[in-house]
Design a protein around this nucleic acid. Structure first.
Length: 565
RNA sequence: CGGGGCGUGGCGCAGUUUGGAUAGCGCACCUGAAUGGGGUUCAGGGGGUCGGCGGUUCGAAUCCGCCCGCCCCGACCA
């Protein structure tokens, strides 16, 4: 490609809309432009890189025995009603009516469609197992698009789905996908880690997230400083502390008037006590029964951990009217005293004495409350969010919380979709069973953003060979010098004939501009042709990353020099 | 959806508090010349509904109202 005719609009300064490093650099390097919030155009350079990532993903999927398909982006809504996921993903779905007034949606993910497809075609155990995948655009009406290409309303996803007769077969496919993912992210040059995670709205009970470490990541992972414990913050546990409930110096319990003061922050200020001296009482509905969850005022309840501890599938906070009925007070004045429902407290609550809590009476709190004297806890458990510095459940060492970008997620789904969509097969004995499923997703655009977040310097992007939009950039120092120009043309022709991806900067510009552009867009190898070394018959081959140069005597040496390392 | 910030040629900004003359600066762009190993210099030039609509005023980028868009923080914490 000749730079003079290439559409690579680089920017000297980054537009002020950009905050994340990857966002700034992708804009500056002319890879992307924003159409509106969360919606981006990929320009030639950005698209070239995207195609590189897609190629890696495709190769590794094919190698793992998955077959590529292409599913529609337009989905009839009934399919989503059948699995009930219209309620889970409802507002995230972009819906519209067609001319015959039928409601359709742009697919935010494809479990429903693929299961419909397989349900129609697979009859027998002989047709299984089967792994299908696609690389396609997903649409989600994100409440808050962010950080350039990291969270967008339209993005390219590689989504694979596997179908099995039994759980052992699913396990095998799951392992295959797991190792294919490791290869994909390794080839993409990412610094990533794999954590166990909660499956959430996808369903199933096992899932692993592939996380690229970055300060602009929206997810949090927990990593032990010493051992190999690593997990998502959602399900991160801590070593349960062995604490006895304190029983000394009980002060007299009192009711205090706290008019319209209900938040931890407000109560703490009003009564002049630290937040950790408050007991937070949250009422939840766990399937068909109500429970009270208790944590110190400065801690947060982790609903995923609470749900898992209770062993229930559904858990939600109680509605205001339910809280009124159960406690007798408005939201914000709940406390454990006099509650007939089950009370689960975090271990940290054991440490508390003479604390403040809601009086179950609007506008009143109780002070000097104590466990044992005033009420009992039914169960102590680890139900709060982990915090920086908590003890590792495996080795007891300090845990660290880090930001990361979720680049891949694999799930064991079981029969969550096959059951409602009637994807059944007959076994050897002619008995009918629902197909066992797994699903495996990769955020293709996020691989690029994550890579840039981890590979840049003060000049710009540092592409590796796998992702680079071009392997070489030829930089003639002075286009009006015929000898330099002729040499540059010769090298360009040579590399083109060799099938190399090369960008030839034939623009009649000063050397400084060319160097800066080449470094900004991050081409791994620069071939510099200038009078300085051409006089001795030498051309310069300079590495973008190390900034080290080698001097070669001809075009043929370029390839041999690189393959020699 | 709540809080905060912003909107002035392609990009980055000044001007808005205290209304006033052809709306300015840097970069980018076009023409010419010199220059040519790190965003060079000189001369000339093009490009703007000051986010939109309405209002106040002799007069609005500037004051008032409504709307739109963008970014950041939070999302239910009793």
């Amino acid at each position: 490609m000749r730079y003079s005719s290439a559409f690579i609009p680089t920017l000297r300064e980054h537009p002020k809309e950009a905050e994340a490093v990857s966002h700034k650099l992708m804009l500056r390097a002319g890879m992307i432009r924003r159409l509106c919030s969360g919606v981006y155009c990929y320009l030639p350079l950005g698209w070239r890189v995207l195609k590189k990532v897609i190629q890696i993903v495709r190769e590794e999927m094919d190698k793992a025995g998955a077959q590529e398909v292409l599913l529609p982006a337009i989905h009839p809504l009934e399919l989503w009603e059948k699995t009930g996921r219209i309620h889970d993903l409802g507002d995230d779905m972009i819906k519209f009516k067609n001319r015959s007034d039928k409601t359709m949606a742009l697919g935010p993910t494809h479990e429903e469609v693929i299961t419909w497809l397989v349900a129609g075609e697979v009859r027998s155990y002989r047709q299984l197992p089967l792994i299908l995948y696609q690389i396609q655009t997903k649409f989600r009406d994100e409440p808050r698009p962010r950080f350039g290409v990291i969270r967008t309303c339209e993005f390219i996803m590689k989504d694979a789905y596997s179908f099995h007769t039994d759980w052992d077969s699913l396990e095998e496919a799951y392992r295959k996908m797991y190792s294919a993912y490791v290869r994909i992210f390794e080839r993409s040059g990412l610094n990533f880690l794999i954590v166990e995670a909660d499956p959430g709205v996808m369903g199933g009970n096992v899932s692993h997230e592939f996380m690229a470490l970055s300060q602009y990541g929206e997810d949090k992972v927990v990593v032990c400083r010493k051992c190999d414990y690593r997990t998502s913050l959602e399900i991160a546990e801590r070593k349960s502390p062995e604490i006895e409930i304190r029983k000394k110096t009980f002060k007299e319990i009192k009711e205090v008037h706290t008019p319209e003061i209900s938040s931890v922050e407000d109560v703490s200020r009003f009564l002049n006590v630290p937040p950790q001296q408050l007991l937070k009482t949250m009422i939840y509905k766990a399937e068909d029964k109500f429970i009270a969850a208790l944590v110190p005022g400065d801690k947060e309840i982790n609903e995923v951990k609470l749900r898992r501890h209770l062993g229930v599938k559904e858990l939600r906070m109680a509605e205001p009217h339910e809280i009124r009925e159960i406690t007798g007070g408005e939201v914000g004045f709940s406390g454990p005293l006099g509650l007939s429902i089950m009370k689960i407290a975090d271990y940290d609550v054991k440490k508390m004495s003479n604390f403040v809590t809601g009086a179950n009476k609007t506008n009143y709190h109780l002070i000097n409350v104590n466990i044992g004297r005033d009420f009992e806890i039914d169960e102590f458990a680890d139900i709060r969010y982990l915090q920086q510095g908590d003890a590792c459940p495996k080795c007891g060492c300090e845990l660290e919380i880090k930001n990361a970008i979720e680049i891949g997620h694999i799930f064991k789904l079981g029969t969550k979709y096959s059951q409602p969509l009637n994807a059944m097969f007959l076994d050897e004995e002619g008995k009918e069973h629902p197909v066992i499923m797994g699903c495996y997703g990769i955020g293709v655009n996020r691989i690029i953003a994550s890579y840039i977040e981890q590979n840049y310097d003060d000049k710009g992007i540092l592409w590796n060979r796998e992702l680079a939009p071009f392997q070489f950039v030829i930089i003639p120092i002075n286009m009006s010098d015929e000898k330099i120009k002729t040499k540059a043309e010769e090298i360009y022709q040579f590399l083109m004939e060799e099938g190399c991806e090369v960008l030839y900067d034939d623009r009649d510009l000063r050397a400084g501009i060319k160097f800066n552009d080449a470094e900004l867009i991050g081409i791994p190898e620069q071939i510099i042709i200038g009078d300085k070394y051409l006089k001795e018959g030498k051309i310069e081959l300079k590495s973008r990353r190390t900034r080290e140069s080698r001097f070669l005597s001809g075009p043929g040496d370029i390839l041999t020099s690189l393959s020699a390392g």
